[in-house]
Amino acid sequence: MSDRQPVLETKNLTKCFPADGGKTLTACDNISIQFFRGETVAIVGESGCGKSTFARTILKLHDPTSGEIYLNGKDITKLKGEASRLERQNIQMVFQDPARAFNPKMRIRDIICEPLLNFGRISAKEKDAVAKEYLKMVELPESFSDRYPHSMSGGQRQRVGIARALTLNPDVIVLDEATSALDVSVQKSILTLVVKLQKEKGIAIVFICHDFSLVAQFAHRAAVMYLGNIVELLPGENLVVGGAAHPYTKSLIESIFDLNMDFTQEIKTIPGEIPSPIDLPPGCPFADRCSVCQDICRKEKPKLKTVAPGHQCACHLVKEVSSMQNAS
């Protein structure tokens, strides 16, 4: 068992939004998770499961409805104003759509240096040199410094996004589907760059992603979310057939299209549709669509429990294994 301190931790983090007719939309439901230095944790799930909301909440772009966020051990949940702004130096985000993540009227040099100027770490004179340094770091030519975002490709822009996220030397970087808008060939190169930088600087990476194969390649751990809940927390490489314990994760893995899959077999899909996250019923969120659902599943919400070393699962039907056995 590791006694490292998490660089980022959430405890019972909940984010709700008001919906029509006085109802409540629960986007994140009691999420407790830890992130450590030099480690990549992927947050996976289908659209609408709440992973993007989770990302924006830990970045304080939304105010949490309840629960706490700890950054380097400090409770930043209720911070406002200047105190909150200062904490932003420790956690940064790379946004999903490189076409929209940059001010079209700003040059690359200014985009990259903006965070540093915000905190007075460099002077205006130093912008040129600093921009070129970071462009080099993300393997882009120095001449890009003068360009505008629209005269670059998506992949190049995403590299700029990473450069921007790095400038403040944050402890945590959140990649919010940062590769989803890119070509497959480009995705890998971006992530390789990220991994390299992570090794050099020991950054904790929160990797929001819906692509299981990417996650399996790059994430140390993966958290599977369904309707705002983490239903399974497992090593990244376990996101393959036979590696997961939770019925939802298993069905997800099995329903993935893969060039190598056996096309003679029946294509398995998860029956039903994702229910609305508005006014969730008690019990397991997956109850309606689970093929092995029991009575208890509808009545009592399962909690995350350890089912193998480094593997937690929230399901009544999976046996807990004592954490004592995880000594390593």
Partner: peptide, 22 residues
């Protein structure tokens, strides 16, 4: 609600700065 405005927030821009520059 464009991402680049949120990016300005997350990279620590002050409100006045965002109003003026964006």
């Amino acid at each position: 609600h464009e991402d680049y405005v949120y990016a300005a927030v997350t990279t620590g821009s002050k409100v006045i700065y965002i109003l003026r520059q964006y």
